Amino acid sequence: MRLAIAYDISDDANRRRVYRTLQRYGAWRQYSVFEVDVSKSERVELEDELESHIEPSDGDRIRIYRLCQSCLDDTTDLGEDPPSEQSNVI
């Protein structure tokens, strides 16, 4: 299944861990946004790992959207292509 994952993480170290976790599963698309292709079991593992890297009391949030095939077919990219690597990860 294809997922779009957006995150807002306050702590640099936690943000780095979230980024590196997501990088193992998929492609960085924009600041704090990834697209990943995972099986159902991989999704559970991914969610568990991401949850361990955030601190909700600090306002950290991760939002996961499932992208159906018709959603993917209707996706439009405007502007430049996504960068080949993250430039804002400390």
Rank of each mutant, 00 (worst) to 15 (best):
M1I: 04
M1S: 11
L3E: 02
A4R: 03
A4F: 05
Y7H: 04
D8H: 02
D8R: 01
I9N: 06
I9K: 01
I9F: 05
D11F: 06
A13L: 08
R15M: 09
R15F: 03
R16N: 12
R17V: 00
V18R: 03
V18F: 10
Y19S: 12
Y19V: 12
R20K: 15
R20M: 12
T21P: 00
T21F: 10
Q23Y: 11
R24W: 07
R24Y: 09
R24M: 12
Y25N: 03
G26S: 06
A27M: 09
W28A: 04
R29D: 00
R29Y: 08
R29M: 13
R29I: 07
Y31L: 10
Y31N: 11
V36H: 07
V36L: 08
V38W: 13
S39F: 08
S39A: 05
K40I: 00
E42Q: 15
R43Q: 13
R43L: 15
E49R: 09
L50P: 03
E51Y: 13
E51N: 15
E51I: 01
E51G: 12
S52N: 08
I54F: 05
P56Y: 07
S57R: 11
D58G: 05
D60H: 09
D60P: 13
R61M: 13
R61C: 05
R61H: 05
R61V: 07
R63M: 15
I64K: 06
Y65I: 09
Y65F: 15
R66L: 06
R66S: 09
L67D: 01
L67P: 06
L67Q: 05
L67M: 13
C68M: 08
Q69T: 08
Q69A: 13
D74Y: 07
T76F: 07
T76N: 04
T76C: 03
T76A: 07
D77E: 10
E80F: 09
E80T: 04
P83K: 07
I90K: 01
I90A: 11
I90L: 14
